[in-house]
Design a protein around this nucleic acid. Sequence first.
DNA 1: TAATGAATTGGAAGCGTTTTAATTTTATGA
DNA 2: TCATAAAATTAAAACGCTTCCAATTCATTA
Lengths: 343, 343
Amino acid sequence: MAVTIKDVAKLANVAPSTVSRVIANNPRISEKTKQKVREAMEQLGYHPNFIARSLANQSTQVIGLVLPGSASAFSQNPFFPTVLRGLSEGAQEKQYALQMSTGQSEEEIYEGVVQMVQGGRVDGIILLYSKVEDKVMNYLKNRDFPFVVVGKPYKYCEEITHVDNDNYRATKEVTDYLLGLKHECIGFIGGDLNLVVTVERLLGYEKSLRDAGIDMKDEYIIHEEFLREGGREAIKELMQLDAPPTALVVADDLMALGVLNTLDEMGIRVPEDISIVSFNNVLLAEMSRPPLTSVDINIYNLGNEAAKSLIQKIENPKEPIKRIIVPHHLVTRCTCGERKEKQ
Amino acid sequence: MAVTIKDVAKLANVAPSTVSRVIANNPRISEKTKQKVREAMEQLGYHPNFIARSLANQSTQVIGLVLPGSASAFSQNPFFPTVLRGLSEGAQEKQYALQMSTGQSEEEIYEGVVQMVQGGRVDGIILLYSKVEDKVMNYLKNRDFPFVVVGKPYKYCEEITHVDNDNYRATKEVTDYLLGLKHECIGFIGGDLNLVVTVERLLGYEKSLRDAGIDMKDEYIIHEEFLREGGREAIKELMQLDAPPTALVVADDLMALGVLNTLDEMGIRVPEDISIVSFNNVLLAEMSRPPLTSVDINIYNLGNEAAKSLIQKIENPKEPIKRIIVPHHLVTRCTCGERKEKQ
DNA sequence: TAATGAATTGGAAGCGTTTTAATTTTATGA
DNA sequence: TCATAAAATTAAAACGCTTCCAATTCATTA
């Protein structure tokens, strides 16, 4: 049906193998024949068949993407489109395509990955999340299949190439920042404890308090899903305490927005009554009322670096394990203020 | 390297063709051999090679996605992740994978599509936008390659399967709604006029005013990008008019948020001083202050239906052209009120 | 028991490339 | 002018699967 290498060969009066070499721009073919063949390709409107090439080459120029199972997290949290853009541009540069593994449940996702890998559909995989115990990651590691993680692997951290922020330090910094504003009762609202990012941020928070000699209260630490609803639930709980915190570290902008909305409904003012600092600095952070003080984690770069290092690894199997830390910085807006003396 | 159909055949003591038939669950193979072969597959950990299968079959079980060029629109507007989820679940059901065509510029995108199509990488394509004049769409149509459009094709609307809302009617309805609230000076803030969705919504708006016998003012109609910045710019212009509108139809929630923020800064109250109704009803609409009255266009379904109908078309080439209209409904929140007499 | 036909299975070609090894062509120098 | 080396090209196998067609097996029936 479609025009193949053979048609081109016939028209140009050469062997198929010669055409193949012209496509690859092999130096062993004379300029004269190259010219001739190129004209034939042009004339027939030839386009190489990727599938056939993949089969012969054992390589597809496709990168598989594994998204977290939570559908709502994916479609509501702007983190994903942004990281996707970084990935996409990194891949595009080296002529790789991106393929998404679909699947709702844990098991479906795992099966999808196995199919991608064993079915030879992709040359490498990027995990867009990092869980404490992850079947998919174990599988890829055991098979020694090229992959990189966006986030920090919980186990074998030294043996897996990954791209992440220094979430531990970042959280320590923002907690220090709140301490600097005289706050002493600082709460933490994080995501699912099975996500490594939550763990890291929690540790940073704890470290900061410990260094400051403040003892932690368990009731100040809440875990919910990375969504607005999560934020709402969390803040309700916190405000019911006898001594509610005067400042909060919230692990995600969307959650923080939920917190903000709920506080607004409760008539509690930000930053006068309570200070908030959150993470990710997505567009929302700028648009909320009041605009959120948030840690910019460079989401785009997270994706972009991940794509680049995966491609390096694919193209050079002996590429060493890498750990890429993308810098973060605090964007100060309007949700933090000095603690006021009890009024 | 990997275990192939031949290895299985050898172990099970049958011909490769038999193994292939067992995989396809061909009824012409006896249960006994099927059992035998399946055991061998199990034992060897066999997984079929998709690439080889694709080559033999001339089909890939992959759907290509074409995203709009504007990187920021993609990564900031929640429309895309949501439609992506719909697509993903629709595709997953029928065991199709999704592949994104990457590319920044118009030209890069076009080239990406050509490669996907002529390279045999995908069985069909979904366009996630509809422009007034689109090279990609023309190309696909001329080649008679299976594709569906999310949105309404500008030309050849009857000849292209597409999934859309009735944007014309929806906009007429919301404009009527504002008229019902006694507003007479109603502005329209839309996206790029090259996008068909903008055109449709503008037409609906105009129709409503015409029916009501209100003459349109050109200065009430503004076009900007579908982003928050766009909303900011637009409202600034409008409020500088001698007789600024008392109500607005805004074609996108994100824009509306920009409008809201800017009005807030200008000290203009919503809905007391000006009413706003917008489109899409993404999470933002609920979270803005005040919460936006917005038309829910069922983004998830848009994607889901698109995936389903493309797959139908792929699997049955004589499937007739279809036009799927996804229902919409107005979600009334807090940004609309009756016009007050001039104060 | 042999012939018939249906049910199974096997062999081989083909999908469109790449690539190795072999062959042909061209250039070189005595 | 001819042998020889270098350069250019070709033939054929391989990638792992599907599928058409032929061959075999098996159960029926005359």
